[in-house]
Design a protein around this nucleic acid. Structure first.
Length: 233
DNA sequence: CGCTGATCATAG
DNA sequence: CTATGATCAGCG
């Protein structure tokens, strides 16, 4: 019998939260090169032209439904997967994209029915070393965290969301810059700045604008790490 | 050198 | 075009 590496990945979607967590925990400490080998992916030298590569790799390793459907990564479980890039000092190195801003109907939406709330209801956070000094193949996954916002966290997000959404409704997308919002912010989300999408303002008037997305600031994910990973690292 | 605004890849 | 996955790049 030939020796073979223990498989650490599964292609089928997990049937339960427990199974998902179990699979995820097996990946903790594993390098991206090893994961890539397991799922037959090619490791890029840089993320310059492969920005979503790490996220897609982990999705594949955990059996998340691929594709671009507007559903959670694990539809049956209602769980969203987010990789979290970690720099040399152990802090998140980038903001976290949440979802696009529904510019075409932003004036009618309320927090409870918002995409932001929905997306963040249940998230499997997966820290990943993102220090540019570390070769891509050698970067390791951290301990996964199955998370839901605490009441105070949701309240904070809601506060930002209401300010941002309200402002877009009343004064247009141009009135909202990435400077606004303590934990949640709005930034461009498009292939490039010339792309236009239809928007309807608070008075029902249509106009065109560059698509926007909601992002979590590192202040938020940093606090999340502090609370849930205290004592390890 | 942190952060905002811009951008990259892929699927449908 | 929209959705998914994000990081890049250079200004202040």
């Amino acid at each position: 019998m030939v020796c073979q590496l223990l498989p650490v990945v599964k292609a089928e979607p997990p049937d339960s939260e427990a199974e998902l967590l179990q699979r995820a925990r097996v990946l903790a400490g594993v390098s991206l090169g090893e994961v890539a080998g397991q799922v037959g992916a090619v490791v890029p030298d840089t993320l310059l032209r492969a920005k979503g590569w790490v996220g897609m790799l982990v999705e594949k390793a955990l059996g998340a439904s691929a594709g671009s459907r507007a559903e959670p990564d694990f539809p049956k479980l209602g769980i969203e997967l987010k990789t979290l890039p970690i720099d040399a000092s152990g802090m998140p190195s980038e903001s976290t994209f949440v979802c696009t801003v529904e510019l075409s109907r932003i004036p009618e939406i309320e927090w409870d029915e918002s995409r932001v709330k929905k997306k963040l209801e249940r998230v499997l956070w997966f820290p990943v070393q993102a220090d540019r000094q570390i070769p891509m193949s050698e970067r390791r996954l951290g301990e996964p965290l199955l998370w839901s916002p605490a009441p105070n966290e949701e309240a904070a997000l809601r506060f930002d969301w209401e300010e941002l959404a309200g402002r877009i409704s009343c004064f247009g997308t141009e009135s909202v810059s990435a400077h606004l919002g303590q934990f949640l912010q709005v930034r461009p989300k498009a292939a490039h700045s010339r792309i236009q999408t239809r928007v309807v303002d608070g008075e029902g008037e249509p106009y065109a604008a560059n698509p926007r997305g909601f992002y979590l600031r590192t202040a938020f994910t940093q606090a999340l790490l502090r609370q849930h990973y205290a004592g390890m690292r």
